[in-house]
């Protein structure tokens, strides 16, 4: 991994993801196994402050952790200099675009 801060944030988001992802998976699939997931039910969950916080945090955490992890793999395969710069720019653009999509994607549940 290249650089102190990417390493630090990869570890910090990892620790936070373990907690947030556990809550997310528990709420969506394990608290009531067998229940089919539908808009009406998801709305009730996402409107609670805890799960709103969990889901929005997850969105930001997972996009950073995943795309930074992908960056680490590609740097290990020998991407350097200008290639590494464009890689960072490209992955940042993808991350921001998916962050916006995810925020807008959760809005119908909150607004419903």
């Amino acid at each position: 991994m290249k650089g102190l801060w990417p390493w630090f944030w990869q570890r910090a988001t990892a620790a936070a993801l373990v907690v947030a992802l556990f809550l997310h998976l528990w709420a969506t699939h394990f608290s009531d196994p067998g229940a089919e997931i539908a808009f009406a039910g998801v709305t009730v969950r996402v409107k609670t402050v805890l799960y709103m916080a969990v889901d929005f945090s997850l969105l930001a955490l997972v996009l950073f952790h995943g795309l930074n992890g992908l960056r680490n793999v590609l740097l290990d395969f020998g991407v350097r200099r200008r290639g590494a710069l464009w890689l960072t720019v490209g992955l940042s653009v993808i991350g921001l675009a998916w962050l916006v999509l995810g925020v807008f994607g959760l809005m119908p549940f909150i607004a419903a």
Partner: peptide, 23 residues
């Protein structure tokens, strides 16, 4: 597993965002 999960997350977000097209 990391690469597979990034791929999944980049699909998961648009799939959940299908709510923008209606319930």
């Amino acid at each position: 597993t990391g690469l597979a999960l990034v791929f999944y997350v980049l699909l998961h977000i648009p799939v959940i965002s299908s709510a923008m097209l209606g319930a």
